[in-house]
Design a protein around this nucleic acid. Structure first.
Lengths: 138, 138
DNA sequence: ACACTACTTTAGAATCATTATAAACTAATC
DNA sequence: GATTAGTTTATAATGATTCTAAAGTAGTGT
């Protein structure tokens, strides 16, 4: 696999040592056409199935947090019992299906630009996140 | 205190027995001019100080969940380590100060109406929530 | 007022996700 | 190959929330 060298470079260039575990996780997260959402638990289970060698849960937490800090992942907290990570780090919003707890990307062009008509002294806007909760219509 | 009878009526009319504990919590949450945000832990500490008789943590959880189910409170999840409840149950949005973790109401008129140009088959919109993260501007 | 029943409160145990610990391991550098 | 700084790991610790089951209380009928 030659994709590995891309990930190795990516990791190294951001000051993270390209360990077996990190490369494995990179392949799982970033070696695909479409971005996606996952929970730590999802990732742990998938790695357990897919990978020959077991990656410990602590390592998964460590790695995901490093990746988030480096901007390779976004964290989306939709409710207290579910915290998702998103491999799509571009500016976008989400649907949350409250019947299934599924999180779905909402492209930027599907939401009118949100403008805030109030600002607080000494503060600036860091991000604007729209969460559209949806449910079965019948 | 005659306000109590208002809360007793409110509780009874929604099928909740007006117990000492629930009335106490009602007074703390709803007997004020302005709405506010709180965590379960905030509430527990305040009740411990204010109240003559201790209300157990389990009761606080039970009560807050009942109140939420009855629509007297809204839950706002801004990140995984903090879950706020809001006594303002009207349709509105929030600022989150990422330096202090403070949650601040954003009146509806301060945000342009958000319209979603996409809909998913078999699904309808339940709510649209805007979270504006702010940080120190210097 | 009394008894009955269903609901509520409570302390403490159980659970679950996440973080901390500290020993073993490994990549980078010389 | 030796050194060292960063990484992984199993396990323990933590902290928030939920569960449990026993004791308490409000509502209803008598």
């Amino acid at each position: 696999m030659n994709n590995n060298s891309i990930f190795i470079e990516k990791l190294r260039s951001s000051g993270l040592r390209p360990t077996k575990q990190r490369i494995e996780i990179c392949k799982l997260l970033f070696d695909r056409k479409k971005t996606f959402h996952f929970t730590i638990n999802d990732l742990f289970k998938t790695l357990k199935k897919m990978s020959s060698k077991k990656i410990s849960l602590a390592t998964i937490y460590n790695t995901i947090h490093s990746f988030k800090k480096k901007g390779y992942l976004k964290e989306i907290s939709v409710n207290k019992d579910k915290s998702y990570f998103d491999t799509n780090t571009s500016d976008h919003h989400h649907f949350l299906d409250i019947n299934t707890n599924e999180l779905i990307d909402l492209k930027k062009e599907h939401v009118d630009k949100v403008t805030i008509k109030k600002n607080l002294p000494g503060k600036k806007i860091n991000s604007i996140e729209v969460l559209v909760k949806i449910e079965n219509s019948n």
